[in-house]
Amino acid sequence: MPFEALLENYLAVFLATIVGTILVATALIGTRILAPYSKDRAKVTSYECGMVPIGRTRAQIHVRYYLFAILFLIFDVEAIFLFPWAVNVAQASHSAFWAMVLFIGILAAGLGYAWRKGVLQWNR
């Protein structure tokens, strides 16, 4: 019964999501009831340097953040691919091992290319 096995493994996770959300909501409602509250125009400005900030806050972000995010995606997907292989590697055949080494090697070569191109250098 795959669904019952799923339920057995992840029912608690589902419940914990609900309980965690309730905990956060309780804290927010509790502070709404307990804490004093007063409105003040100066109080609700951005906490920067006492003046009203100039310019948009949602500024443009440097492109290197996106490059690292793309690299992260590649290697995270690689890690997911590796997990089932890693569990069975001790019983696997030699060819299964070398096939995965080829896969890791291609990704490592990609990392080397990114390194060479200066993607991994933060302050260019």
Partner: peptide, 14 residues
């Protein structure tokens, strides 16, 4: 707040 707290709470389940 929920997006930070709930994952930390979920880890403890396992």
């Amino acid at each position: 707040l929920a997006a930070i707290f709930v994952p930390a709470f979920l880890v403890l389940v396992a």
